[in-house]
Design a protein around this nucleic acid. Sequence first.
DNA 1: TTTAATT
Length: 503
Amino acid sequence: MATVTANGVQQENGFSTTNSAGRMNGLMIGQNTIPMKDHDAIKLFIGQIPRNLEEKDLKPLFEEFGKIYELTVLKDRFTGMHKGCAFLTYCARESALKAQSALHEQKTLPGMNRPIQVKPADSEGRGEDRKLFVGMLGKQQSEEDVRRLFETFGQIEECTVLRGPDGASKGCAFVKFSSHAEAQAAINSLHGGQTMPGASSSLVVKFADTDKERTLRRMHQMAGQLGIFSPMTIQFGAYGAYSHAVSLGSTGEETQMMQQQAALMAATQNSYLNPMAAIAAAQMQQMAAFNVNGLVAAPMTPSSGTSTPPGINATALPSLAAPMGVNGFASLPPQTNGQPNNEPIYTNGIHPYPGETANGIHLYSAQSPTVTDPLQQAYAGVQHYAAAYPAAYAPISQAFPQQPTIIPQQQREGPEGCNLFIYHLPQEFGDAELMQMFLPFGNVISAKVFVDRATNQSKCFGFVSFDNPSSAQAAIQAMNGFQIGMKRLKVQLKRPKDANRPY
DNA sequence: TTTAATT
């Protein structure tokens, strides 16, 4: 029995039902309605979604164009962090087309500085083998100008000039053709052929980077930035090894190893001033921490085949490789690629420090003489945080910055059991950094660093309030003992006797 | 001079 969908498209599949609005609902079998979609339905990628919007918030916006078959907000699989984009499949192909033309680049959701993106997901078409990067454009050249330049070579599906937040062109663009051959033809004719007004050299037309290449470039940039400020020889050593691998042309495993090292560098460099960078490093590592065997790559050991970079202290190397092998972010068997392993494995995945027992009690003989390598210490700090991160998974609903509404103007108390006292904060930390550090664990209603009135200097302690006790507990679990520089944070429930005083 | 994001 053929039925007609809400938008009038004939549908050849089975027994349909309708809801109260008269829309087709799906296939009814007994009491259950199974959603149906067109065989040629299009999966859409939705970009530029504010990170506080979940499926239920998005649904009304998209339902306007037809019955939704599936809507999934993308989350980081490890941190649960909203990625700011989603996949959307309508039951009817036609709905997808309507939504795309009505919404793509047509409106900007609150808090975003770019318009919403609605287009077929990458999985729908073939890869990026028909997308060109165009460099050395004039800063004045618009999408239209670029289009005119390329339209003789074929059907242009997409043309975007890259712009900064202020809207100024970055002098480059992406142009997507409907076929690889068209794209190739454009390269052949245009690359290097002319110099645009204001450009420093001739036009660049080449296939756009793959995801892999992009990741590599980011690593490289990050490593470069770290190198500039790096006070530690070992970081230059790590960077050297990384560059070496790049120049060889990287295999998957080498890429993983580079990511590990980059993460390590980030952890080291930034844990003094910026634990968020350490957090970012931890997130990066999730992508790369383990090789196909589930074993950790041990890239920096002298036996790994990669030459030991000049200037690196060889005795420091095993101390780098070993902790990676022992502790993953997930609980893994204690395999270490042949590295000796005498360390206990803790079932909760958290690796306590020397001076701290497995159940988290501080003995406060903390700075063990056996852990003196600052890199290792910094790494341990990241490990501690990252290992405990899954515990913070559930409460995450508000993402990092760009949420002006959750930045408190003044200190607010949460309910009993929701207020934390944090000591041993870095001198440089202000309210904003404190808040950022605790946002992953839930809804922070207040974050206050105490400041000396006379000097305006931080007193290195502060208070953070959540709106529920389990967020507070998750934060204690993850952040108490978190190493920043040479200090470890003390994170505990605020003593109730202060409860009624603002401070 | 390589995007903000692609399960």
